[in-house]
């Protein structure tokens, strides 16, 4: 029984501060094991004459619980990874770093794309950008920011599109550059 493997999988996920690589191998093995356990149950039934099936009781129950438990563990693994991925989408929008993306399973990449679609759709519907101000209510209107990579100034006023050169410092509207700061393109100088 590879129960300990499933537990190790969950522990790895909960102990890690970032998203560990998707363990497709263990997920597949656990699925295989559930299939085996399931066919064991069927086999037990097939081998035992109808009259004697009562004494199968505990061995069937134990196998059923093994299946339920393994299934639950893997689903918990998938769900908790999804939660991390969703959080990444909220916090970093579309600029999730390449090295984090590499840890996604193939289906998780698809999940992110589709989740992004439905969330963007919702945000367009309500017309309010929900991904701003995730840290708490705004305290100041302008902040001092240092440019870590060349980028263009977003925003809706006449300064939009102004080029910010790497290494320079600017006094900018907080609401315009919040996304760039979270993405690590700008640094908030306190």
């Amino acid at each position: 029984m590879s129960n300990s493997k499933v537990i190790a999988l969950l522990q790895e996920l909960s102990n890690s501060s970032t998203l560990p690589p998707y363990d497709e191998e263990t997920v597949r093995e656990t699925g295989q094991e559930i299939n085996n356990t399931h066919s064991e149950i069927i086999q037990l039934f097939a081998e035992t004459p109808a009259k004697e099936r009562k004494r199968l009781g505990s061995s069937v129950v134990v196998r059923h619980h093994t299946i339920a438990r393994n299934k639950r563990c893997i689903l918990a693994y998938l769900k908790n990874r999804i939660d991390v991925i969703k959080q990444l989408r909220w916090e970093l929008d579309n600029s999730i770093p390449e090295d984090v993306m590499q840890n996604f399973g193939s289906k998780e990449g698809e999940f992110l794309v589709k989740y992004d679609e439905i969330l963007t759709q919702y945000i367009d519907d309500v017309g309010v950008d929900l991904c701003k101000d995730l840290q708490g209510p705004p305290q100041v209107l302008y902040i001092q920011a240092r440019v870590l990579e060349d980028c263009q100034l977003p925003g809706d006023d006449q300064e939009e599109g102004r080029l910010l050169k790497k290494g320079t410092e600017h006094f900018l509207k907080r609401s315009d550059v919040e996304g760039l700061i979270r993405a690590g393109v700008l640094q908030h100088v306190i």
């Binding site: 997920v27 597949r28 699925g31 295989q32 559930i34 299939n35 399931h38 066919s39 299946i67 339920a68 299934k71 893997i74 689903l75 998938l78 999804i82 399973g105 289906k107 998780e108 698809e110 999940f111 589709k114 989740y115 439905i118 969330l119 759709q121 919702y122």
Partner: peptide, 25 residues
């Protein structure tokens, strides 16, 4: 949003894991 999200989650569980299991479980 709720409808698409539910569909998305279901298909994610299914495609990642559940489809490899026997029908009864």
């Amino acid at each position: 949003f709720a409808q698409s999200y539910t569909d998305l989650i279901k298909s994610h569980y299914r495609e990642s894991f559940l489809q490899s299991l026997p029908d009864r479980v």
